[in-house]
């Protein structure tokens, strides 16, 4: 699903590369954590998978597409095969829950009949049935993140990228969100989640990829957040 070969990324404003000779493979259907301190390169990693940025060196292949060789006009089609979830939810405050989810389909030209069918289905999946007409500010943090996950998943992506999705949530709510992501993973969607939450990583015992100063320092198939931390 994801293949990185000797990928480096440098910025003009920094003397140290954000990613330094990173090579990695993530198989289809895997659930992986990307951990590491702030500035270790996690966000750069995710942004490159989205083709928001291109590597300075090396090759990135996502779902069979070589992102380095991808024409700019093909980027939107690539992003349709991905879903993204963020720490700050990024919901549209002037739209209701179902409108927020429908928005992701509207803007890629899905027919209205499809939207009418799949939006309630995905709301049901994330446990927000009956809250379709609420505004985001009427929901709790956990519920808002569920809406964001529903929006990311509604297009049935091959890969779900989550950047600290529990960063703004209390431990109980975080646990619920992780159950939801696991459930999505069981449908066959590959999940890659950047996190600082050691409790979650330790309790899930999934693959852990640890970055430090732009390098992979650890890659364990059933890892914990960090020995001795």
């Amino acid at each position: 699903m994801i293949h990185l070969s000797h990928v480096s990324k440098s910025y003009k404003t920094s003397t140290r590369p954000a990613l330094d000779d990173v090579s990695l493979d993530v198989e289809k259907g895997e659930f992986s954590f990307l951990i590491g301190p702030s500035g270790s390169g996690k966000s750069t990693f995710l942004r490159m998978l989205l083709r928001e940025e291109s590597p300075s060196k090396g090759e990135i292949v996502v779902a069979g597409h070589n992102l380095g060789k991808m024409r700019r006009s093909k980027v939107p089609a690539h992003r349709r095969s991905l879903g993204c979830v963020f720490q700050d939810f990024r919901l549209l405050q002037n739209k209701t829950v179902d409108q927020n989810i429908a928005f992701a389909l509207e803007v890629i030209g899905r027919p209205r009949s499809v939207i009418k069918k799949v939006v309630p289905e995905v709301l049901d999946l994330v446990g927000l049935e009956g809250k379709a007409n609420r505004m985001p500010h009427e929901l709790s943090g956990g519920e808002q993140q569920r809406v964001a996950i529903a929006r990311a998943f509604v297009n049935r992506p091959l890969l779900l990228l989550a950047d600290e999705p529990t960063g703004n949530l209390d431990p109980d709510t975080s646990g619920d969100i992780m159950l939801l992501l696991e459930r999505i993973n069981r449908t066959g969607t590959t999940v890659l989640m950047a996190t600082h939450d050691n409790n979650i990583v330790d309790s899930m015992r999934r693959r852990v990829i640890e970055l430090q100063l732009g390098k992979i320092v650890r890659d364990e198939s059933r890892g914990v957040y960090g020995v001795g931390r």
Binding site: S73, A77, R79, S81, F103, A104, V107, I108, R151
Partner: peptide, 17 residues
């Protein structure tokens, strides 16, 4: 900007955005 960012991330074409 939030709308356009979401549009970009979910794969709306540049033209559509």
């Amino acid at each position: 900007r939030t709308e356009t960012e979401i549009m970009r991330l979910v794969g709306a074409s540049r033209w559509r955005t």
